[in-house]
Design a binder for these strands. Structure first.
Lengths: 248, 248
DNA sequence: GGTTCGCATTGATTGAGATCAAACCAGCGG
DNA sequence: CCGCTGGTTTGATCTCAATCAATGCGAACC
């Protein structure tokens, strides 16, 4: 990981200014953050953190994508989170973190030294409130995902994944899209990684993508670009329903 | 649900005094809580909350057990949480809650009216800090469970469940137990509910319990009492390892 | 242009867990 | 004591996804 000068990007110009832990901060609080933050980048494939390590820093994903996963002693792997811009990494109050974190694209991180950030949380209600809010959201997401892993079929899992990814992407690009509108996703994950996220094998994942393609629910352009001609139709395939909401 | 007088149990005498959201409160803060709390009980089988409802109160489980689950349109059900004494129910900041909550034994709840409790959180760092801590713990637990659901075999799932339940029970009864010591669990769930938690069918769950019994890893006394003669041996069956720790 | 390397896809077969179906068993009311 | 009832266990069979095994494909490098 390369260290960059802490002045590379001002908080005010930060692409995740309104999504990250700092989202609710006022300008004077941003100044404090500005002083304790530092940027780091990592290349695709780099391990950012290992479950056995001690965590010395917290950080936010600024750009790129990373995965959070556990590998069992016999090699089975389960991804428990896909980290996109705005997501926070770390567990204030604990120095261990029982998952591995790996960059799956070039990643920029906004880092905070552990003790300093914990002090910030204690002193800044707008940070701690935002952190609670984000943690509750992640908890909901983790539980939603448990439903996917526990009860959906392979086809439904793949559809669910595409739906949730499309929603997150749309959210990051600041806003919704019209119901039934065409959606394009550039997958940040390989088939292998998708499989680990979905609790499937590569082969089954690939087969289900082919099946969705055959059924006209998705159109592909290379392995990683996926077009969804009718978003609602794909939502129906996901079984989960969750809210029946549109892309938002 | 029956309403009880708010003076039934003083916070100081509360069985979850040191486990719940109030765990870090000082006596003056407890006085505030005392004023806004009220007790409720529900019988086994009662629905405490439906995913479609608006949540008007937060609460802590004081005694008994409840489940948090989602039922898909076609009837498939996945439990995403087993609520035991000390656990908090609710999502400060949101009025909806996308899971059903059902009592699975006679339950006592300590309730707080939504707006009042949110004010309390805002004003009482010791409450908001504790809530963040609890939420982070639950998030870890939800992710651990995702690994179980996504990658473990039926046998490992059942073993994992027994291990995690034994750990929670031991924790509630205030403290650890010696490694390798004999452990007794009284299951708060029926086979059906276990299956919903594990992402299995009743039949498979039952078969795996029988298999563990045949292999001497557990001994049963009726359907709900399970003895674990060698806890570490059962942990080995769970595959997950997670920390290799003892009952703590 | 050809070879190689890392994914991704497709095919054939197997197997773990689901499904369908039938006991079993304890508590309980008649 | 009997027959019910609801949950649990066990058995037989089926099915979906895993596994084993090629094959395809595109980018990079010679």
């Amino acid at each position: 990981m390369k260290m960059m000068s802490k002045t590379d990007v001002a908080c005010a110009d930060c692409p995740i200014r309104h999504n990250a832990v700092c989202a609710q901060c006022e300008s004077d609080e941003l100044e404090v953050l500005e002083r304790i933050k530092s940027y780091t980048t990592a290349e695709s494939g780099e391990t950012l953190f290992r479950a056995t390590d001690r965590m010395t820093h917290f950080c936010s994903v600024v750009e790129g994508a990373a995965t959070m996963s556990r590998t069992l002693p016999d090699g089975r792997r389960q991804m428990v989170g896909l980290l996109l811009p705005g997501d926070f990494i770390g567990r204030p109050g604990r120095t261990d973190y029982p998952f591995d974190i790996e960059a799956i694209s070039r990643v920029t991180l906004c880092r905070f030294e552990r003790a300093r950030f914990e002090r910030l949380i204690a002193d800044t209600p707008r940070v701690s409130a935002r952190l609670l809010q984000m943690t509750l959201d992640e908890l909901d997401a983790a539980r939603d995902w448990a439903v996917v892993l526990g009860r959906l079929t392979a086809r439904e899992k793949v559809a669910s994944f595409l739906v949730s990814l499309a929603r997150r992407m749309a959210h990051l690009n600041g806003g919704g899209a019209r119901p039934g509108a065409k959606v394009i996703i550039d997958l940040p994950l390989s088939r292998d990684e998708m499989a680990d996220h979905l609790g499937l094998t590569i082969e089954t994942t690939s087969r289900q993508i082919s099946a969705l393609k055959r059924d006209g629910l998705i159109v592909t352009d290379g392995a990683r670009r996926i077009e969804i001609p009718d978003f609602d139709a794909l939502v129906d395939e996901a079984g989960d329903d969750e809210d029946g909401g549109t892309l938002a």
